[in-house]
């Protein structure tokens, strides 16, 4: 099944590495953003008893401008987006791996999973 030097074992170690690095990097960003947030807002009184959709930290443009303004919550949100991207990145790399292995069926299956995630992303934006 495997072609050339690239085998399932190589894919496993690459996937393991991606997941590990993804978690470490995103958690570092989250903790750093958390420290900034607590430093700036640690003594205010929050109220989370009603849902209001935190619109400030939903759109990418707001998050980017928030990071530039050194806002803690925007930095945390960026870390969370990195964390959500980690499993998605894992699928992208499996997709490439299956292409190298010339496993057509699983190249298609990885692409399908990726498309479902993209579709749910787009639906969240539109509806």
């Amino acid at each position: 099944m495997a072609a050339g030097n690239f085998k399932d074992k190589d894919m496993q170690s690459i996937i393991g590495w991606i997941l590990r690095v993804g978690v470490i990097v995103s958690m570092t960003v989250v903790v750093f953003g958390g420290a900034v947030y607590l430093y700036r807002h640690g003594h205010s009184i929050p109220d989370y008893s009603a849902f209001n959709g935190v619109p400030q930290f939903v759109y990418p443009s707001n998050i980017i401008s928030g990071i530039l303004a050194f806002r803690g919550r925007a930095i945390i949100q960026a870390g969370i987006i990195l964390l959500i991207s980690t499993p998605v990145l894992r699928i992208i790399f499996s997709f490439i791996g299956f292409i190298i292995e010339k496993d057509r069926l699983y190249t298609f299956i990885s692409l399908l999973v990726l498309l479902i995630i993209v579709a749910s992303m787009l639906s969240g934006h539109a509806g």
């Binding site: 947030y37 935190v54 969370i80 992303m121």
Partner: peptide
């Protein structure tokens, strides 16, 4: 992780994911 990512992208855009919590 992949399963959760599929619903997290919806939640993120709807403001369910509050960074401070």
């Amino acid at each position: 992780g992949v399963t959760a990512a599929a619903s997290a992208v919806v939640y993120l855009q709807r403001g369910y994911i509050d960074p401070a919590i």
